[in-house]
Design a protein around this nucleic acid. Structure first.
Lengths: 177, 177
DNA sequence: AATACATATATAACTTATTACATATATTTC
DNA sequence: GAAATATATGTAATAAGTTATATATGTATT
């Protein structure tokens, strides 16, 4: 999995500008695959060079011009091939755990503060996820696989946050505070 | 959090060669912060240049020579500073979720196979984690914060794997197979 | 004797990602 | 009226990470 494939995936749904792509990512896939805007703009440029996407200029008087990107036939082929051959090797970097592994010298009080501020952040994230989907819909995977799979990525996020929050609360109980 | 800090963290415990460092990482921190060996060797080189680590050659007749790295006083200072100022921004890349978001065209059967092979991998990982710690020890964080925090990183891994496995089993139930 | 695997180190070429810089307008808030 | 924020696009410099290649030995297996 790489950013090229992620961008092709979004453009396979609808034409988008770099800016919109960036916002879309932040609001969905971004939680388990993040990219900054310079990365997105440079990747779009190289995708265009490879003929996997195309773009149309939308000239705006007053406001800055837009480049609206669309996926090409070749792009769709590459997208499907990449999704099929995906090796599913996770890359998970959780600095809290690394800090825990090496940071016992920071002392108990530091850890109480760190865990409880991290807990607050994670509760906010959970609320964000839950507000994206108030009532869990009953989607039949046989009827609408796309909606089903997309809902399930959110369901994963909610489940993960709940696990994290439980784990942190238990941690705080054990170290006091 | 960066690789420099991770390496300094290990060397703060004991002197190690690049190779040993690589093995240590694979067996512990590697699960939530992975690095390849070329990365480790180049980072050690730059740490030495900055005076944060030092090394002694161990000449071996027959076997290849070793470079045994130790942390310096400056290195210990930087380590503690980095751990204190850690911003705890997670970077999580889970290609399965990205593939789910864009890969509905792959069809139900593909998904059944993918989820069940991913499930097997995750069960193996859980077994690995559990074999590292057969009986959950009762560690008093007030008495041995280091051992407590290190155990808790493993506890996190076990909890995460259990969540993942439950989620995957539920998924397979919902899509059949 | 040959193969495979573990130990041990390292560079080169390449790809990816981050941070800082740079510009420009519209709308909202104080 | 000023300041902040959102929209909108990009480049440059740097840092980080991957894959392939290179060398060399010990031990265990077949």
């Amino acid at each position: 999995m790489d950013l090229q494939t992620v961008i092709l995936g979004f453009l396979n749904d609808e034409p988008l500008t770099g800016y919109e792509l960036s916002k879309r990512m932040d609001a969905s896939v971004g939680f388990y695959w993040h990219a900054t805007h310079p990365q997105i703009y440079t990747t779009l440029k190289s995708l265009a060079k490879e003929g996997l996407v195309d773009f149309a200029m939308e000239y705006q008087s007053g406001a800055p011009n837009k480049k609206i990107y669309t996926i090409t036939g070749a792009g769709r082929e590459i997208l499907l091939r990449n999704l099929q051959n995906e090796t599913l090797k996770d890359e998970i970097k959780i600095p809290l755990l690394v800090t825990m592994f090496f940071g016992s010298e920071l002392g108990l009080q530091h850890w109480q503060e760190l865990f409880s501020s991290y807990l607050n952040v994670q509760k906010t994230v959970l609320n964000q996820y839950q507000s994206m989907c108030k009532s869990p819909p009953k989607i039949d995977p046989k009827k609408d696989l796309k909606e089903f799979l997309r809902y399930k990525t959110l369901d994963f996020g909610i489940g993960y946050q709940k696990f994290l929050i439980r784990w942190l609360e238990n941690m705080l109980k054990e170290i006091g505070e």
